[in-house]
Amino acid sequence: MSEQPHYRRPGWFTRNVANRLVAGLTSLGISVMGSRVLEVRGRKSGLPRQVPVNLLSLDGSEYLVSARGNGEWVRNVRAADGALVLLLGKRRQPRVATEVPDVDKVPILRAYLKRWKAEVGAFFDGVSADSTDEQIAAIAAKHPVFLLAPAA
């Protein structure tokens, strides 16, 4: 039996209240702590799919981190060869996402946890921004990270 990819499905409140509230504010041009709406082509339907995400800016680069693991948006970004759009209000920012190897994730995950631990800490198995590099590296494979670049 093969091991299932790590993913923690959002609960009712997250799906029906929190995500809708953040997406609604973001669509009005109000970013909640760096929030954006990620738009990516669905890998099965081919239709645009939207989900609110936390955009992490670190050392002049932008990253998307999946706190919940290999969820729908992660699989759609992979299937779309990294092509996505970040939305904030009426602004559309085409981006190309490149997946970051596990060995390079520690400083990115540390910064992500420092910024959003209260919101996403439950998905990191007790690891926090104050954890050792080894502890963060041990959970890195469970959390896809994408480096974003402007689309050509």
Rank of each mutant, 00 (worst) to 15 (best):
R20C: 02
F124Q: 06
L56E: 15
L88F: 01
S66M: 04
T132A: 05
T98E: 15
R68E: 13
A118V: 02
F146G: 05
Q4K: 13
L64D: 12
S27F: 13
F13R: 08
A137D: 07
H6N: 11
Y63I: 03
N76F: 00
L38P: 02
I136E: 11
L58Y: 14
A18N: 12
L56Q: 14
T26M: 14
N76E: 01
S35E: 12
H143Y: 12
P5T: 01
A122G: 09
L28S: 11
R36W: 13
P94S: 14
A152I: 03
V103S: 14
L47S: 10
G82L: 00
G69C: 05
G82C: 01
V17Y: 10
R41P: 01
V145G: 03
G69P: 08
G60F: 08
E62H: 14
N16T: 04
R75H: 07
N70V: 02
R92P: 02
G34K: 08
G46N: 07
S2W: 09
L88Q: 12
L25K: 03
A97V: 06
L21T: 15
D133V: 05
P144D: 10
G34I: 08
W12Y: 08
S2H: 11
T26Y: 12
V74M: 04
V85I: 14
P94N: 13
A129N: 01
G29L: 10
I139C: 06
K114G: 15
W12R: 04
S35C: 04
V127Q: 07
E39Y: 02
Y63L: 05
